[in-house]
Design a protein around this nucleic acid. Structure first.
Lengths: 139, 139
DNA sequence: TGATCTACTTGTAAAAAGCAAGTGCTTTGG
DNA sequence: CCAAAGCACTTGCTTTTTACAAGTAGATCA
């Protein structure tokens, strides 16, 4: 029952929103990119409390959108390993700007902010650290 | 019937999504920031075809979120002038990263991309141009 | 003054999100 | 080796949001 994405226009912002424009998709990307989470259960247990059917739906949407892949988990046959694609990793600069914006107008973790500045300064290096799971950050 | 925003967590990304996390809000910001649109009718006529009741709802949401203000229109009593607040203008860097991301993976206007790079390079100057209405860009 | 413009509101149907429970493999512990 | 628990979902139902169509009230135009 995989419904494909309907693009409303060729506007780049509209295009992005057609893939990730809801209250949950970018939180999944956040968990993958910044928090070292990569299983269904990990996402379910994340602070905001996504409903299980909604999570399933968003994950397949993100897969169709080319943002994540489902793979067999190296440690367990019962688990599924979710990973960001290159396209997904390339969302990090946008997420970083979002973090910096939120920091400016809402109260958020200091750690998140200094980290965001680091990523902004050295995108490649920090992204690599993130992807290796060497760095996890509390958001 | 102005319903206030419910924040799901203190995560900066989640916080931003609680205000603008849907398929329409950022398109309104786009129209204000890049296209020199500033009335209800302008937004309605924008390419993606937002429903009138949804537009009304999103506009009050954005107002509550501190992103836009409603003001009396200098040319006509029948019109309302919508404008980005500082907080709204500060969303531009995030929009720029979104534009660059979309360009990389989807087909979008060349003009939009070179413009995005310009804003990224000279944020202050380009933002000023945009806000003065001196620059309009086709997205 | 009547038609048109502008910014909405109202009503209803369709779609998406939220909630609770269940299914079917897989792993674990005795 | 078997029962219980873990894991990744699915199913059914309710509530909320979005979409579509029509209508309203004040301002402007001809």
């Amino acid at each position: 029952m995989k419904k494909k994405i309907a693009f409303r226009s060729t506007c780049p912002i509209s295009t992005m929103l057609d893939i990730t424009g809801d209250k949950w998709s970018l939180l999944i990307v956040r968990d993958l990119a910044f928090k070292g989470k990569n299983t269904y259960g990990d996402f379910l247990k994340a602070g905001e409390g996504i409903a299980t059917n909604v999570l399933a739906d968003k994950l397949t949407q993100l897969e169709i959108g080319g943002i994540v892949t489902k793979e067999r988990h190296p440690q367990s046959k019962a688990k599924v390993l979710y990973r960001l694609t290159k396209k997904g990793i390339d969302l990090i600069p946008a997420l970083v700007e979002i973090i910096l914006w939120s920091e400016k107008y809402h109260h958020v973790h200091e750690q998140a902010v200094s980290f965001a500045w680091q990523v902004r300064r050295d995108k490649i290096g920090m992204t690599k650290m993130l992807m290796d799971g060497a760095k996890k950050i509390e958001l």
